[in-house]
Design a protein around this nucleic acid. Structure first.
Lengths: 210, 210
DNA sequence: ACTGAGTTGAACCCACGAGTACAATCGACA
DNA sequence: TGTCGATTGTACTCGTGGGTTCAACTCAGT
């Protein structure tokens, strides 16, 4: 088992990472197992030693990548726990960090893969998003609810607030980065974050701030 | 030429439509030309009579579908030309119409295809988006600029306003429709539209409305 | 009826890639 | 050192699908 045979550095991990890399570069159908094996520095039969199928290899690679990016984002949201004296500055920071993660190579590739294979792998969305945007929105809504209790935000639906915050943040990116295929400067990212926060606060900030 | 031989109803059109249907259902790589020919009610060599290649067939199918959906959306934006006595009601109507188009089968399939093949067809984005979101944003920004002159909207960047309006509108959809794979009720669509317009106006409406 | 462009069905060639078989090898552990 | 399981390279089978060929056919326009 992978957890015991540590003699040669765990091949399974290398296979999963290589698989994600190649799938991200070529898409599911175009990627051939030999390429993946090469990318992982492994022989083709070894791949089939660990994964029964190209399809399950794909699923596992997706799952691993999704878990990684979700954890990164949740970590960023932690900053909203400490209330902070300057709400706008805190939100700006969080927004910028989220945009950085959102424009990450890994993240873009994952979204592309999900979009592309959603028809041939209907369960891929459950694998990835089952712990994806939903959990993220939920966590964000939780923070917003707390901010509402502290009198910083309007006392309306925090779920809707979280939904719209993420929309304001990531929506404009698609057009500007050509769906994640062209890079974007850090300044532009920072401006986008500030613009999103500005609009968000104008609409959601509690009217009676002392 | 296709413009002359009208004897048998234009095959070219049937081929393009069939191609888009099959590509949308299976993705580029999985779709085989025979399937497309069957879908179009045409023999395989006929396909190659009109299109030199599977790749160019793909490009032309994308282009045709993109032109269609763009025209539909631009038509909706026309409603913003007549200023209208009730801005919110007008925006609600436009937002709802845009959401309907955005959740259309054709539209979702086009987005999926674009996302999936953007790496193997880097020029696909130019074909589609060259007359896609950019032109739409531009048209919307134009209307917003006019509304600003009429004193309805804040006198700030109309481009940014258009960008954020579209983001507020379409962003929440992705999660709710599971990337366009699960249907959404018309009521929910209407609520989403109103929520987006509410937030948008709170942030962008001119402060001194008589 | 004659011509010619476009269409059709069927068969064909060829490349590519998933998955397997096998003999040789390596590394850990007794 | 000897044994065992995992790994490796190679070579193989086999299905699939892009693209082509060709003879028969259909339907204008004359």
């Amino acid at each position: 088992m992978a957890t015991i045979s540590r003699g040669r550095i765990d091949k399974r991990q290398a296979i999963l990472e290589g698989a994600f890399t190649v799938f991200a570069r070529l898409g599911y159908a175009q990627a051939c197992v030999q390429d993946i094996a090469d990318e992982a520095g492994v022989a083709k039969p070894t791949v089939y030693n660990h994964m029964t199928d190209k399809a399950t290899l794909f699923r596992h690679a997706l799952e691993a990548a999704a878990r990684t990016t979700l954890d990164e984002r949740l970590a960023v949201l932690e900053r909203l726990s400490g209330p902070g004296d300057d709400l706008r500055a805190t939100l700006d920071g969080v927004a910028h960090a989220l945009l950085l993660l959102h424009t990450d190579e890994r993240s873009c590739a994952l979204r592309r893969l999900l979009y592309s294979e959603i028809t041939t792998f209907p369960d891929a969305l459950d694998i990835v998003v089952g712990s994806g945007p939903h959990r993220l929105n939920q966590a964000l809504a939780e923070r917003f609810a707390r901010l509402t209790l502290l009198g910083h935000l309007r006392a309306t639906d925090p779920d809707s607030a979280a939904e719209q915050f993420m929309a304001l943040l990531t929506g404009p990116l698609e057009a500007r980065t050509r769906m994640g295929t062209s890079p974007i400067s850090d300044e532009e990212l920072r401006e986008l974050a500030q613009a999103a926060v500005r609009t968000f606060l104008r609409a959601w900030e509690a009217p009676n701030t002392p």
